[in-house]
Computed example of a mutant assay.
Amino acid sequence: MIIVNTLAKLKTHFNQKIEEIYSSNEANSLFKIFVKEYLNIDAYKIISEPEMRITESEYLRFRKSINELLQHKPYQYILGHTYFLDLKIKIDNNVLIPRPETEQLTQIIIQQNNNKTINNIIDICTGSGCIAIALKKNIPHATVDAIDISIDALKIAEQNAKLNNTQINIINDDILSLKTNLKKTFDIFVSNPPYVTMSEKKNMNKNVILHEPHIALFVQDDDPLVFYNKIIQFFKKYANPNAVLYFEINEVKASQLTSLSQKYNLDIEILKDISNKDRFAIIREL
């Protein structure tokens, strides 16, 4: 029987167990995350206090997480939460794990609008609600609506709103065949819709394919902009004067989205993400 009763031994055990699918750097980063979450200690103590005692119950918790990591389960799902613009966001496999690019998009929206008079915001394909909640936190005078087809995702969004002491209006509907009669117009529209084509699926990591919700990720190759087209139509119908539509986009579809926007006589600006890829679209009336 392996005796893992110190922090140093726990680190060695953890890294050895997951090294078959994670690099040394990845394993070290993951260990720091779990140490912070499970032991409530800072990462520097891994070096400064290697002989710190580990209880059996603490070890068993790590062992369970090791087994889940070996099944390619993302650490955020193992922990049951992540952080988005410093907000704690509950997640499970009914919602996507928020990416840094989505944080960047939300920061752009906040920076461009926090000094303006914004009354109504709508987040389409809200998932965990992270964008809607962050916007409500940073533009507090605005009313924020959040739409998603998945009732399970919206349950998570509701929990996250409560967790972060915010009020957002939840709408269970399909943007591709909207039935809700919205009796207001909006100043800000934002969406991170499904945009990965089925042909791109083969290039994705196992942890995404095996655990994240495909309904929130993939579109058919023969109609990759189906969500963008419908959301632009929605924007045309419900936009206030000077309203703005913000999209996260597939980096290889920027030119197609530009052509689609021009078809609707809209102005479009494409912005790059932190990796210098075409990732965001800002759309307005001409």
Rank of each mutant, 00 (worst) to 15 (best):
I47A: 11
R61A: 11
N25I: 00
Y59P: 08
L60H: 15
E49G: 04
K32L: 03
I21W: 15
L30W: 06
D42Y: 08
K36T: 06
Y38C: 06
S48W: 07
L30D: 10
I47Y: 07
N5Y: 00
I54C: 06
N40G: 05
E58K: 04
T55C: 05
N25Y: 10
K17H: 12
V35S: 13
T55R: 09
E26V: 01
L7R: 01
L39C: 10
T55Y: 05
L7I: 08
A8L: 11
K36L: 11
I18N: 09
V35G: 01
E56F: 10
K36P: 01
E51K: 13
N40W: 05
E26W: 00
A8I: 02
E37T: 04
I46L: 09
I41R: 12
K45S: 07
P50M: 08
F62V: 09
E58W: 02
R53E: 13
F14P: 03
N28S: 15
F31G: 04
E58M: 03
I18A: 05
Y38R: 12
K11Y: 03
E49L: 12
A43L: 00
E37W: 00
N28Y: 10
S23D: 10
L30H: 04
K32N: 15
I21K: 14
K45T: 06
Y44G: 01
Y44V: 11
L39P: 03
K32I: 10
Y44S: 09
K32S: 14
V35E: 04
I54S: 10
A27Y: 05
S23W: 00
S57F: 05
V35A: 14
L39A: 07
N15H: 09
F14Y: 12
I54F: 02
V35D: 00
E49R: 06
Y22I: 04
S57L: 07
E49I: 00
K9P: 00
S57E: 13
L60Q: 15
Y44C: 03
F34M: 12
F34I: 08
S24R: 15
E56L: 02
P50Y: 00
V35C: 12
Y44P: 04
I46M: 06
Y44T: 06
A43V: 13
F62N: 03
L30V: 13
I54E: 05
M52N: 10
S23K: 01
K11Q: 13
R53C: 00
Y59M: 05
S23V: 07
E19I: 06
S24N: 15
T6R: 02
N5W: 02
A27C: 09
R53N: 11
K11D: 02
F62Q: 07
S29G: 14
E26D: 12
L60K: 15
L60D: 15
L10C: 03
I33E: 08
T12C: 08
E58N: 08
Y38W: 06
I33K: 01
T12Y: 09
T6H: 01
R61E: 12
Y22M: 06
R61G: 03
N15D: 10
K32A: 15
N5C: 06
